[in-house]
Design a protein around this nucleic acid. Structure first.
Length: 515
RNA sequence: GGGGCGGUAGCUCAGCUGGUCAGAGCAGGGGACUCAUAAUCCCUGGGUCGCGAGUUCGAGCCUCGCCCGCCCCA
């Protein structure tokens, strides 16, 4: 468990988010997936593993071209603008520690995409054909006739008329891989989770696959098909490759350990993408995990209808730590979940302020008052030590299932236990009796050491607050170097300087409730 | 139309292969305490488990039908 990827090799634990379409304004749904990936990688880092976390932007396709035109820019200028003003700032606001940020317009991507498809073309995986059907420009997709809204043949997503389009383009023989895909799901060569997502994929592939068009010729904002300059590669077929191109296909990173995706793009990642890799003879990603939608006020946010909430609006008020905590604690990862400003405020105050933050205040204040800020020499209480082990074990197991909610619940249970311990042992009464000095020492030491463990276990989720806590406890060394596996074996040294610093999660003015 | 998933206490949700599975947290009510961010700790939950049938000795948990919500269907 302590080696790089758990299997004794040098391979990094490689996690990806979807690459986000630059035309969208970043909303909390995008940030949710990114936070999950970030916490997952930070957790593995806290184990001492080598990790690699990739996110980025998807920049080709007809919609980009249209948006650029509308703004009087070239497509590249438009993408540059969106990346620098919207997408990179989003990562900053949620405190994402991604190792790389790939853009599909970068040469490192476009050149490898062309090499990849040239290879498949040469191998006979691609053939020329034609397709005619109703096409929605906004979706950049052909629609199934039955799903159009009547009257008027409107796109069900955009409620705008579709156009009948006939294209001669290139097809990838996806159908050829149906059986091999099924075998890969069943053998566990590639896992698709949660179970609902796996079921969907299995049923879908079991009923047979159609070959898919991998090129477009009605516009030119895309990566050129290397053997036919009149075509560009279909944006999805281009975008999926980012996970591989970003790491140059290096065995140090590839295959990816986890692709985090939204449930709407599950099939691209669990069917088309692995088939592409099979065709190229490359290893498959180990896990595709689909998370659900964020509902706001009971309704889903829409990428295209601009009803999304920008993450900054929340982080400006609550801070990035609370933001990261809230979404992973409140929602069951993999299912749809609800966001509300009220529940965010309630979690913040109750769990972060009243339980965790206040516990730190209680301890630092008492060590200051009763022991002049010097941590006494004592041994940690056995019951608390046992609870610490339980919290760590439960959290570790949950993280391995990508069950962030349970992982955080496990740590918060520990916080509750320690608050209860302090209340029960009544150190403020013990302090009045000099003959009970060693008892007081034990209570203070136990509480301080429990807080130390909390800082380690919560650092992947709330790095800023945990750094503060680490410092207030006078803990030695770098928090980043504290191994989660050893959290119950290492202890604060006696004599540490404990200081009551700024509140970890101060009470916030009750504002912004209009959300 | 087809496929997948969900509909459990006021709110957000747990409930694995059917028999303490009717639960947790928050909110609300009562009490204790004062180290602390008016925080903490203890006690307190009687909700047709979407609706209607069925299988079973016994069903949120299985089957069928229906209603509602969400995702997907180059």
């Amino acid at each position: 468990m302590t080696t790089a990827s758990g299997d004794g090799t040098d391979k990094a634990f490689y996690v990806t988010t979807p690459i986000y379409y630059v035309n969208d304004a970043p909303h909390i749904g995008h940030a949710y997936t990114t936070v999950a990936g970030d916490v997952l990688t930070r957790w593995h880092r806290q184990r001492g593993e080598k990790v690699h976390f990739l996110t980025g932007t998807d920049e080709h396709g007809q919609k980009i071209l249209q948006a650029a035109d509308a703004h009087g820019m070239t497509p590249q200028e438009w993408c540059d603008h969106m990346v620098s003003t919207a997408w990179l700032p989003m990562l900053t606001s949620i405190d994402a520690a991604n190792d790389d940020f790939i853009r599909t317009t970068q040469p490192r991507h476009t050149e490898r995409v062309q090499e990849f498809w040239q290879r498949l073309y040469d191998q006979g995986e691609v053939y020329s054909g034609s397709y005619t059907g109703p096409y929605c420009i906004a979706c950049e997709e052909f629609k199934v006739p039955g799903e159009l809204i009547q009257p008027g043949d409107l796109c069900p997503i955009h409620t705008r008329p579709v156009e009948m389009l006939s294209e001669t383009n290139y097809f990838f023989r996806l159908s050829y891989y149906a059986d091999r895909l099924l075998e890969a799901y069943r053998s566990g060569e590639i896992r698709v989770e949660p179970e609902s997502a796996r079921n969907e994929v299995l049923r879908f592939v079991e009923t047979g696959l159609n070959d898919i068009s991998m090129s477009r010729s009605t516009f030119d904002w895309g990566i050129g098909v290397p053997w036919d300059p009149a075509h560009v590669i279909y944006v999805w077929i281009d975008a999926l490759l980012n996970y591989w191109t970003a790491v140059e296909g290096s065995a140090e990173y590839w295959p990816a350990d986890v692709h985090l995706v939204g449930k709407d793009i599950l099939r691209f990642h669990a069917v088309i993408w692995p088939a592409m890799l099979m065709a190229a003879g490359l290893p498959l990603p180990k896990l595709v995990f689909a998370n659900g939608w964020l509902l706001v006020g009971g309704e889903k946010m829409s990428k295209t209808k601009l009803t999304g909430i920008p993450p900054q609006r929340i982080t400006d008020h609550f801070g990035s730590d609370a933001y990261r905590y809230y979404f992973l604690r409140e929602l069951q990862f993999g299912q749809d979940g609800s966001f509300s400003w009220e529940s965010m405020a309630a979690r913040y105050q109750s769990e972060l302020g009243d339980q965790l933050g206040n516990l730190a205040s209680r301890l630092t204040s008492m060590v200051g008052r009763y022991r002049d800020g010097v941590l006494p020499d004592a041994v940690i209480d056995e019951g608390i030590a046992a609870a610490m082990v339980t919290a760590r074990d439960d959290a570790e197991a949950a993280i391995d299932r990508l069950d962030f909610q349970s992982a955080l619940a496990a740590v918060m249970t520990f916080v509750r236990i320690v608050n209860g311990y302090v209340t029960e042992r009544e150190p403020w009464k013990v302090a009045k009796d000099d003959s009970r000095a060693s008892e007081l020492d034990a209570i203070l030491y136990t509480t301080a050491d429990a807080l130390r463990a909390m800082a380690v276990l919560l650092n992947p989720v709330m790095p800023k607050a945990c750094a503060k806590l680490w410092q207030q406890l006078g803990a030695p060394g770098e928090l980043a170097d504290a191994r989660v596996q050893k959290v119950a074996d290492e202890h604060l040294p006696a004599g540490s300087n404990v200081v009551k610093g700024d509140l970890l999660f101060p009470r916030l003015a009750d504002e912004g409730t209009e959300a």
